[in-house]
Amino acid sequence: MREIIFDTETTGFDPQNGDRMVEIGCIEMIDRIETGQSFHCYYNPERPMPKAAENVHGLSDVFLSDKKLFASGAKELLDFLGDANLVAHNAQFDFNFLNAELVLCGFKPISRFRMIDTLAIAKSKHPGAKLSLDALCSRYGIDRSHRVKHGALLDAELLTQLYIELTGGRQIGLGLAEDSKRQESLATLQSTSQRPERRTFMVAREHHASADELARHQKFIEGIESPLWTEV
């Protein structure tokens, strides 16, 4: 099963108010294992970057001024996403921005049926706890010491590790692998084993004594001196 873990950085909180996506980072995972394939891109938002947003991710107007427009790279992004399920933390936020950008340049929005929200998973597992990416990484012992500011690709990498932990950890994959090995061994044994050869049974022996055996027995009895069974 192919899944894409992704994160975005934006100019603000609401694309309906003119905020734009300025960065996206995606990590490919197949059967809960990272493949090493990723997608990362910065976009020129065609609007000034609010200082509050810049303080979060560090992406300035100067830095973004020579970056491509989302419309010029949308097809490349969609090709990478394919038809995989998309995993994000507080996924509603990221989907709102991604779909707003797609619609702006004439593409269909991505179905929310493909959305997997790690925030919702964390809420069900740890009700009442702090559920930010930082807090959850600390809870599960995921090293985030290199995270000075938010960054889409870096956060997607952290989220990949968190998603694995939230959904059972690496041992799930190992358990499935062991089950698979056991099934393969059983199948091999069944396919290579031979049916036992048909056994030939001897005809049952008659258990009553023959005339010769009776005669020899009688002679033996008569040779016993003072047998106990003759005493009264």
Rank of each mutant, 00 (worst) to 15 (best):
Q171K: 14
E213F: 00
Q194F: 10
A177N: 04
R198A: 15
T188C: 05
S210L: 01
K181G: 04
A177S: 10
Q190D: 00
L186F: 05
S193H: 07
M202W: 01
G175N: 11
A211Y: 02
R195M: 11
E184S: 06
A204V: 02
F201L: 13
G175Q: 06
A209D: 01
S180N: 12
R182Q: 10
A211Q: 08
D212F: 00
G175K: 04
T200M: 15
A177M: 06
I172D: 01
E197Y: 06
D179A: 14
G169S: 06
A177D: 09
R205T: 09
E178I: 08
R195K: 15
Q171W: 08
P196M: 08
T192Q: 11
A177F: 02
G169A: 06
L186P: 09
H207L: 13
G173K: 08
T200L: 15
P196D: 06
T188N: 13
G168Q: 06
E206F: 01
Q183D: 13
R195Q: 14
Q183A: 03
L186N: 13
S193M: 15
D212R: 06
D179C: 12
R198G: 10
S180W: 03
G175T: 11
V203M: 10
D179G: 05
L176D: 13
G169N: 06
E197Q: 13
A187F: 04
E178S: 07
S193T: 09
S191G: 09
A204R: 05
G169D: 02
L214A: 04
S185L: 14
E197G: 15
L174E: 10
S185K: 14
G173P: 02
I172E: 04
A211K: 12
